[in-house]
Computed example of a mutant assay.
Amino acid sequence: MSHAADGVLESLPAPVTDGALDVVRAHPLCAETPVPLLQHAVTPRESVYVRSNFETPRAHAGWTLAVAGAVASARTISLSELAALPQRELVVTMECAGNWRLGMDPVPEGEPWKYGAVSTTRWGGVSLASLLERAGVAADAMEVVACGADAGPRDDAEGMVRFERSLPLAVAMHPDTLVATHMDGEPLTPDHGAPLRLIVPNWYGMASVKWLNELVVRTTPFTGYFQQRRYVFEIDGNVQPVSRALVKSMIVTPAPDTSAPRDCVVRGWAWSGFGDITAVEVAVGEVWYAATLGAPASAYAWTPFELAVALPPGLVTLRSRATDSSGATQPERIEWNRLGYGNNGVRAVTVSVDS
């Protein structure tokens, strides 16, 4: 759908992460936030997880963002024009849809993510709605397709495939859907979509299209590769595009496969794209206890929880399960899907407690 500017698709070498990330694949780069750094309410900038479907495009000063399709006035916006518009900043928890794919049985195809493909970050930029309003969205518009400059071959498709995903118009027009230029107060890095990326709170990370260079307003449903053939729940022949993040929780202290004191404070995070976190329970063995909830850093950030508890000696299994304001609760196991998305099943953490 979109056309990359000259030189945009010249790939860069994979960065040296120096232990700041756990690399799952070097080319294109896919890397998790290391376990110790998942304890931060806001993930350190250098350890925010990275998911790339193709090699990283090269940013340049002449980068522009086109707004086209079902609009009154198609336009091309420069980086300097974006910088002059009113800016917003949001703290957002973002999770890759394939996070904890290795926790599914059998393990589906796709990147072998453990559970660190989730981070919480401060994003800064311009409200997408302000750009669409300036272009004049048609009365019968229904979707906005975000197009990235990254592209490449796929085994199950012909020719070059570009990364493109659509949003319902209501989501695109929400004031907190951003065209981001900054992360943690500094310009985006190449691996995080420099110079522009979309940020869609509450949705899995595939909606936050990196290296954004075109927005296309549509009056009919989008049927692109990453809309109907990848980032979809495929169960018993039924296909549904992945969208909002399912309710989920994660214990971060004590860390898995470490030692823990008898008098222990279990801590972690819970999040959902469908509502506020209303409860978290923590199991010690087979006994469930109500955890205490803290205040999230924003309406779109994960909610802290903790439980002070006396642990029995020996190997102990800890689990957590969250409930959100929609009434959804984490299941013990999810319904298996072929591409391994949305694993929000309860995850066990085993620790050794000294006698």
Rank of each mutant, 00 (worst) to 15 (best):
M1N: 08
H3R: 13
D6H: 09
G7Y: 07
G7F: 08
V8I: 12
P15Q: 08
T17D: 06
T17Q: 14
D18N: 15
L21V: 12
L21A: 10
D22A: 12
V23K: 00
V24W: 03
A26E: 13
P28G: 00
P28E: 00
T33W: 02
T33H: 04
P34T: 01
L37A: 01
A41T: 15
A41N: 15
T43D: 14
R45A: 05
R51L: 15
R51E: 15
F54D: 09
E55C: 02
E55R: 02
P57H: 09
A59D: 15
A59F: 12
L65I: 01
A70Q: 13
A72N: 14
A74P: 10
T93P: 00
A97G: 15
W100L: 11
P108V: 04
V118P: 02
T121F: 05
T121L: 09
W123P: 00
S127L: 12
E133C: 12
E133I: 13
G136W: 11
A139G: 03
A141N: 10
M142Y: 05
A149D: 11
D150Q: 07
G152R: 01
R154A: 06
D156Q: 10
E158Q: 09
V161Y: 00
F163M: 01
R165F: 04
L167C: 07
L167T: 03
P168I: 06
A170C: 11
M173L: 14
M173H: 07
M173D: 05
H174K: 14
H174M: 09
P175T: 05
D176H: 09
L178T: 00
M183R: 03
E186W: 07
E186Q: 15
T189N: 02
T189H: 02
D191F: 10
G193E: 02
A194S: 07
W203A: 04
S208C: 08
W211P: 09
T219M: 06
Y225W: 08
Q227S: 15
R230C: 06
F233A: 10
F233N: 07
G237Q: 03
Q240C: 03
S243C: 07
L246K: 00
L246F: 05
M250T: 08
T253V: 09
T253H: 06
T253G: 00
D257H: 07
A260L: 10
P261H: 09
G273F: 07
G273R: 02
F274C: 11
D276K: 05
D276P: 14
I277L: 08
T278H: 02
A279M: 06
E281F: 15
V282T: 03
V284D: 07
V284N: 00
V287W: 03
W288R: 00
Y289C: 14
A290H: 10
A297M: 03
Y300L: 07
A301K: 01
W302K: 06
P304I: 01
F305I: 06
E306P: 05
A310H: 08
L311C: 04
P312W: 08
P312E: 06
P312K: 01
T317Q: 13
L318W: 03
S320D: 09
A322D: 14
D324R: 12
A328Q: 08
Q330A: 04
P331Y: 04
E332D: 13
R333A: 05
E335H: 14
W336E: 13
R338D: 12
L339D: 12
T350H: 10
V353Y: 13
D354M: 09
D354A: 15
S355D: 15
